[in-house]
Write a protein that binds this DNA or RNA. Structure first.
Lengths: 248, 248
DNA sequence: CGTGTGCTTGATTTGTATCAACCTGAGTGG
DNA sequence: CCACTCAGGTTGATACAAATCAAGCACACG
């Protein structure tokens, strides 16, 4: 699985998989044409660091396919993941030129990049982009605040249940299958990455996954493939309001 | 100190204390005039709840004076503060009509409110407001992510040191006094509120404040008035990069 | 077949929560 | 004016959840 196996992507915005969710979602066809001119794709292998915290950033980008993480690291090596970047998520901050976090590909990732200058120019001229970016940023802020509750107040067991629930919910919303019955998810993260996301150690993550399995809240096939027989039960274990809170 | 003692505020935007920092910071005088027409002030007493989570929100607002908190509460009563609202901070989310968090005044607070509909209309017409709001939201997102690191990975002692450092830094940036020597801060929060912000119990907060005092990192006069003899020492205790990281 | 990465499980330690008592200062009312 | 109350805070003893230290398993890969 070397770099050369990754497809040399060249795609029309019209049939882009994230066309209706990304920062360009609201663009008219003429605006899209302008974006199309300044965009370029980049591929990253699983495990590769896309951006180092502190680095000069002269582009912004959307995740097209794959999953990346946003992490902060303290001097002594303690790490905290502060965001999970899924297809359509936006990377980079207009108006700032150095990265605040490490961005790492946890699967093979394809990004749709824009050089920062032209993108900022376009943003100031086409309100559709700025407006969509505001909307996406507000969503991320809500997600970050939900995560603050998890990090500050939830038990290890609740943290794991919450993570599984969130991943399952996202999968369901992406694939649009609203299965009443059991849900099936593939965890996109290693135990260590989960630990970094949840503010735990990898041992605790492992133990709590085992415990949830033992108690029948989830069942596992291999280390990544999870079946959720009863989603409401999982939400209870997560300590969330049972009403589901689909604010979207 | 009843409601009637609070001044009936009526102010020109031109000499508003948050004119250059709030959502209206970038507005031209004609835009400001329009805003002036749709704005109104509201006052809240210390301790009063400004907005309940889940409530219908038909206005957005800026904090003019005072301090408010944003908190989330779990069914069993566990609470996590997810934001501290200082003068110029924005409350409410254009494009959503129910509140996601409780907003509470921790001091007497004056808010500059706009009915949501007219504000959203103005936003779609004047890019200056939308642009400034994006900028503020991105800043809040960064702050939330910094807090995620604190909640997930810092020790109780580091959490307290971080909180004091952040409050001190903000005070210094507001009053523009760049004192080389000792800094003086008044904590705007009770021990319990600090605990809710830091993901601790109030007992642990109290103990760690005592410990930092005992070790000479801070000194206390009363329960709220803090003197910081050596700010770099405090940053070390906070576990932060010592370079200060003034990204602003 | 050996090596290594990701993961699990066990034993022990430790930092923080919990339970509980008491202190302090401000406000209240007799 | 003093006794009372009460909210906010401190401090101590103990319990417990998660971290740490440690061993070993399972599977992929050269």
């Amino acid at each position: 699985m070397s770099l050369h196996d990754l497809p040399a992507v060249h795609q029309e915005c019209g049939d882009c998989p994230i066309r209706h969710r990304a920062v360009c979602a609201r663009c008219e066809s003429d605006e899209l044409a302008r974006l199309e001119q300044i965009k370029y794709y980049r591929s990253y292998q699983s495990g590769q660091t896309i951006i180092w915290s502190g680095d000069r950033m002269d582009f912004v980008a959307s995740v097209v396919t794959g999953i990346a993480t946003l992490t902060q690291t303290m001097e002594d090596g303690r790490r905290q993941m502060v965001g999970l970047l899924l297809p359509s998520d936006f990377v980079g901050r207009p108006g700032r030129n150095s990265a605040a976090y490490d961005v790492t590909a946890t699967t093979d990732v394809v990004m749709c990049c824009f050089r920062k200058r032209p993108f900022e120019e376009m943003m100031s001229q086409t309100p559709h982009i700025a407006h969509r970016l505001l909307e996406m940023t507000l969503d991320e802020l809500d997600a970050a605040r939900e995560w603050m509750l998890l990090l500050g107040r939830k038990t290890a067991r609740e943290k794991i249940a919450s993570l599984v629930a969130i991943i399952a919910r996202r999968d369901a919303s992406l694939s649009l299958r609203r299965s009443k019955g059991e849900m099936v998810v593939d965890l996109p993260l290693t135990r260590e990455e989960m630990a970094d996301y949840l503010g735990l150690t990898l041992e605790t993550v492992s133990r709590q996954i085992s415990a949830l399995k033992r108690d029948g809240v989830i069942s596992l096939e291999g280390k990544r493939h999870v079946t959720i027989p009863d989603f409401d039960r999982l939400l209870e274990e997560a300590g969330d309001d049972t009403d589901g809170g689909l604010l979207i």
